[in-house]
């Protein structure tokens, strides 16, 4: 019987959310191809993280002191050994920064190419094709392996819905790879968070931005509440910074900063070109404006036409409630 092997990533011993999504993808693929699902994760077998991988019928704890810190060389060598032991049909990874770093090397060592950042698959008469996005999502491509197993795939975050973790009923097997410290050529140091700079909007994942619609300096607090609730940075269009209501460094636009957050929530911003130029790279734009013809709605993904003084407090409350 063939195997679908899923490598999970752990943070503080627990599988990450995207790893559980990859496990769910693995389960779907296993059932579509009549394979058994195996899961592997770095850690010690008695770690609590392994007990939540109930979907898998075989679980491996990759346990070696040289795996304590991530290195491409160490992870590649360890995975190669497990793969050559299990001879899986498919090997799935969550598409994370770590996987992007070592999985292509792993695939090359196996003479394969990783099908990366996959959003779905179709299994049809024994032939499995994987969907991945090209041209920043403007085109979908169907990929398939043209070589014997294993086929390596990394799964995009959010593409599959993670099942609720179920407790394991199988014994967790410790797999100790043979690793040689001298074969690990990179020396990573402790990860760190960038020191709190003045304001760096350009790397902020979430931004709430305010424009002329706010009318008065005193009302900025309303927007700040929303930003705090979301955990977002506060930004503004030029008139707000010109008026001195927010410092210049928070200005987004052609004469200010260029930003590309995952969420750009524009409140009371009509959308002059100077502003659009600074935020057009945002992944998702939400606009709240009372003027339904405001240009900002042309580029927004979601819009609320209404009085910001009513909508924003309601939204802040709803966000707080959702976050618990």
């Amino acid at each position: 019987m063939s195997t679908v092997l899923v490598f999970l990533e752990a943070k503080s011993g627990e599988p990450t959310r995207i790893s559980l999504e990859a496990l769910a993808a693995g389960a779907k693929l296993a059932s579509a191809t009549g394979a058994v699902l195996a899961a592997a994760m770095v850690g010690t077998a008695n770690g609590t993280g392994f007990s939540a991988l109930g979907a898998a019928s075989a679980i491996y704890a990759l346990d070696h002191p040289l795996l304590a810190h991530y290195t491409a060389d160490g992870y590649t060598a360890a995975c190669v050994q497990l793969i050559s032991r299990l001879q899986p049909e498919f090997v799935l990874f969550p598409h994370t920064y770590e996987v992007r770093d070592f999985a292509p090397r792993l695939a090359t060592r196996l003479g394969r190419v990783l099908i990366s950042d996959v959003t779905g698959f179709q299994a049809d008469a024994g032939r499995v094709t994987f969907t991945r996005q090209l041209f920043q999502g403007k085109l979908n491509g169907q990929y398939r392996a043209a070589s014997p197993a294993p086929c390596l795939i990394s799964v995009q975050a959010g593409a599959f819905r993670a099942d609720a973790p179920t407790a394991t009923s199988v014994a967790i097997e410790t797999f100790v790879p043979e690793l040689d410290a001298s074969a690990i050529r990179t020396a990573p140091s402790e990860p760190f968070r960038a020191a709190a700079q003045t304001v760096d909007l350009s790397s902020a994942p979430l931004i709430v931005s305010v424009g002329r619609g706010i009318k008065d300096e005193a009302n900025i607090a309303l927007i700040k509440d929303l930003a705090d609730a979301l955990g977002a940075e506060l930004a503004a269009s030029r008139p707000i910074c010109d008026a001195g209501w927010l410092p210049m460094e928070r200005q987004v636009g052609s004469s200010g900063q260029t930003v590309a957050p995952r969420l750009y929530l524009a409140v009371g911003i009509s959308g002059a070109i100077q502003h659009l130029v600074g935020m057009k790279g945002s992944q998702c734009v939400v606009a709240i404006n009372k003027d339904e013809n405001a240009p900002i709605f042309e580029i927004a993904d979601y819009g609320i036409v209404g009085d910001l003084f009513e909508v924003v407090p309601a939204l802040t409350a709803a966000v707080r409630k959702a976050k618990g």
Binding site: R112, G141, Q142, G306, A314
Partner: peptide
């Protein structure tokens, strides 16, 4: 060892979804 089999344009084009209702509903 890997083939790009076929291509397709994503069906959903980006459009603005206006969320309506009372402020609380829209929020």
């Amino acid at each position: 060892v890997v083939l790009l089999d076929s291509l397709a344009l994503p069906s959903r084009q980006k459009t603005t979804q206006i969320l309506s209702g009372t402020p609380a509903e829209a929020a």
